[in-house]
Simulated assay, not measured.
Amino acid sequence: MLNQRYFKRFDSLGGAENFEFWRKLVSLPRDAGTTPRSVLILRPDSIGDFVIFSRQLEGYRNMFPRAKLDLLGVPEVCALAEATGLFEDTIAWDRYRYEKRGVYWREMLTRLSETPYDLVIYPCYSREANADEMAAVIPASERWAVKGDDCNLSREALRYNERLYSLVVDISPVPEHESARNAAILSAFGGIPKSWNQKQHPLFTEEDTAISAGLLEDLAPPYVAMVPGAQNSYKCWPRERFAEVLDAILDQTRATVLLGGSPQEESVANWLRAGCQAPERVRILTGRIGIRGFAAVISRAALLIGNDSGPAHIAGAMGIPAWIVMGGGHYGRFLPDPQAPSTRVFTSRRSCFGCNWRCKESEPFCITKAKLPVDSIIKCFGIS
């Protein structure tokens, strides 16, 4: 019996009526015991999560060498997945519309209920209600998931939702870093984790390279990529601090600064360029190039400066030096990254590190009080 109280989000979309709509679409899995011919991987999380996960993609491909392998994720993740060449198809979903727009929510679930797979894999340690919800309506012989933590769901809800899956693996003792967790999850599913190298899976195509080259053809190197935004505003270093770093780079070096980010961050980029001392050496790419195109831009940069965000992980995956300001909410789980030695992390250490972003202060001082040593940046990378 499915219980509505584990899906409190439904209250904002019509309560019991929408729960009943979802319940009718649910199909419980059965262990087929045969080799899957079609596999869907659910990655409903962020760009950085996928970039770290991509280190084990070949392991999943090798588990099902003859199967049709697809991926469900946000549009940016789907774009990166397509560049790897390991997926036959992708299914994009819009998190905001799914959580806030009842019509889109119903359309998405209906579409998934009409898209059968032999196997659905949800290989995330921190499961969330959205993906459990979507996995449940996909007609599948088998569904695999992870007995994870309570970052996004209560322990009670996690246990209750396990009935939606035919296999739930336990990776205890849990490794600290997400990369090691992904390897442990693949191993628990029966795959063989592989050692990762930075040339293994591309995050952009030759077409993306050509587009990025066209955007930069009138700008002299060296390039410094700067990303002053992040998916969550509480992870953002104050824009005034970015302005100080920007002016120092423009004053003390000959570098061209490339401002990147999502369309929602364009106002910050415009503010930074308008207030700097040499706007002719600042190019705004924010909202004007897709994530793969910006990955190609990062590959041409001498350095990336930014917050704990997707571009930081993209730079690390390609071995591009990155100096990143981050807080203590998940410190050590995603960054610092032992497999991305070119990435340096700057924070203001607090006794509350590891709070899972349940900040009890008036502001996240672990971020707002962090400092970037600008003089060291200039000396380290020879961009003067």
Rank of each mutant, 00 (worst) to 15 (best):
G332C: 09
P338F: 06
V146I: 12
C366M: 09
N161S: 08
S195Y: 11
D31S: 15
S27L: 08
I211V: 14
P279K: 05
G310F: 10
C276H: 06
G214H: 05
T84R: 03
A274Y: 07
K8S: 15
W237M: 07
R358D: 12
S195A: 14
V26H: 00
M63P: 05
M1I: 03
E88L: 04
R66K: 14
H330P: 03
R97L: 10
H177I: 07
I171L: 07
P116C: 03
T205N: 13
N307F: 11
D251F: 09
Q277D: 09
S309D: 11
S179I: 08
G275I: 01
V77N: 04
L272P: 11
P139N: 04
A92Q: 08
A269L: 08
T90H: 12
G14E: 02
R159S: 10
P123D: 04
I305M: 04
M134L: 05
C355W: 01
V174P: 00
E240K: 08
P221V: 06
L72Y: 03
R5W: 04
M326T: 14
I211W: 11
E20T: 11
D132A: 09
P29D: 10
Y223G: 00
R95C: 01
C151W: 14
L109D: 00
V282T: 03
R239Q: 15
G191S: 12
Y6V: 07
Q252S: 12
L112A: 07
L153S: 05
D89Y: 13
P311G: 09
N182A: 07
A79L: 12
A269N: 04
C276R: 07
I367P: 09
S154F: 04
P338T: 01
I185D: 10
L119A: 06
R159A: 06
G328W: 10
P36V: 04
S195E: 14
S166V: 03
P238K: 04
F21I: 00
A79H: 08
S376P: 05
C236L: 11
N130G: 10
S154K: 06
V174N: 01
N62S: 15
R163S: 11
N3E: 10
S54I: 02
D70T: 04
A210E: 14
E58Y: 01
K379N: 14
P228V: 02
P338V: 09
D218E: 15
W357N: 15
D45G: 05
L250C: 06
P364H: 08
K147Y: 09
A269S: 14
V374E: 08
D218Q: 12
P373Q: 09
A129H: 09
A230K: 01
I298L: 15
P263W: 02
A129R: 12
W105S: 10
D170T: 04
V227Q: 13
R5N: 13
V120M: 02
V169I: 03
F365A: 15
G85F: 06
E133C: 01
T347K: 12
L285C: 09
E361A: 13
P123C: 03
P36K: 06
F10P: 00
I284F: 12
V174I: 14
N161K: 08
S38V: 07
F21E: 01
S376N: 13
A79F: 05
N356T: 12
C151T: 15
D251L: 13
Q252M: 11
S351N: 13
A278H: 14
C151P: 02
